[in-house]
Amino acid sequence: MTIINIDNALLIVTAIAAIWTVMGRSLLKATIGLAVTSAAISVIIFRLESPLAAVFELSVCAGLITAVFVSAISLTKPLTHKEILYASKDRMKRYIYLPVILLVLGAALAFVKIWPGLVIAAPAAASQPEARSLLWDFRRLDILGQVIILLAGAFGIVLLFGEKKNK
């Protein structure tokens, strides 16, 4: 049995990307870390036999949300050199506990041996409709709710991002 199989590699990539997202100094690098986390999670979701959700995760979370964050960051003002020096001293104190907590968690999980493989053999499923037919035939109200939420979100973004014209 090889130790570095695709599941372990995915775990390592996702863990490093998530920690980098939280601990990275630059907001832009944190956004890129979030996109890498999303991409790795979409591969995991695909491995868990959910290709439709994996495609959504990859296109929306790794793509669209990254674009939204990058545009939001580009509209803000960068920190001055003095502010960066002050923030880097301060942030080290605040973020140093995260790796410690994660190491303790990993050690605890290794101790109780909760390390099954990523893909767990599913029980024999009863005849279940496909995800597409489930969405369109049985969960129409959800689709309607999603459309309303999307429209409300778009309306809110236009109000918040849009600048007032000078009269």
Partner: peptide, 10 residues
């Protein structure tokens, strides 16, 4: 995936 209901989960 664990319960075999991937369509609902998706």
């Amino acid at each position: 995936n664990m319960t075999g209901r991937t369509a609902t989960a998706q």
